[in-house]
Design a protein around this nucleic acid. Sequence first.
DNA 1: AAATGGTACCTTATTATGCATGGTATCGTC
DNA 2: GACGATACCATGCATAATAAGGTACCATTT
Lengths: 119, 119
Amino acid sequence: MVDNNAGHTIGQLRRGVVDHCVLALLKKGEGYGFDLAKTLAHAQLIAGEGTIYPLLSRLRREGLVDTQWRESDQGPPRRYYVLTESGEAALENFRSQWARFKQSVDTVMGLPEEDSHVE
Amino acid sequence: MVDNNAGHTIGQLRRGVVDHCVLALLKKGEGYGFDLAKTLAHAQLIAGEGTIYPLLSRLRREGLVDTQWRESDQGPPRRYYVLTESGEAALENFRSQWARFKQSVDTVMGLPEEDSHVE
DNA sequence: AAATGGTACCTTATTATGCATGGTATCGTC
DNA sequence: GACGATACCATGCATAATAAGGTACCATTT
């Protein structure tokens, strides 16, 4: 109940990043919600599964991902997500924004700027 | 009126970062709102002055900064902000979180992980 | 076949915070 | 004394992560 300031900080950091992380994961190959949630939770990029489904709905609503139900060999059926062209474009767009943003923060923070070469 | 998705994305990115950027700037020396706003706007870390004052109020309320009114040679009086010990601690705390967070995102994004040496 | 636990999905309310907008006061200059 | 620039502050809004709770399916065990 009592929120650590630390935990809260990271929570705000994740804003506007998690969705594009999903896109990045989907670029590597199709995935379904529960699995994406586990991956992102392991990377400490989300706190629990409660985050992933509204997020995926949003991505679908915005046309950045496509979905298809599919039966699973072991377990309940899953809704698989794949990146659309629009989603790939959004991902690329985010990549450059992320690089610039990162550098801005690092500069203000007084961290050394590494030469971030994105090819 | 019509919000670019691009512009909006960056807006969400700034969440939870801007306040600590202010702390970082104040670590380099005292400052006042209008000037901080200009610096951060130049670094594209805020959109305008509208952001800085509620933010500074929050920092003051949380005891991360101290303030003092002071007359100015040229212009109206200013409210100068200085970092408290609590603020320095929060900044240090954020630094490590930022490093970890950055790396997590870069990893998921498929970017090369630079060796982030935190001493 | 009924109960259990894990997988998988979804919805709702809460909360934090960047942003736009508009307002007030001071100073120097004309 | 009017104007613009500086400097500060408050209000309302939209966004998105989170917590919490709920539904349904599947495999295993009894």
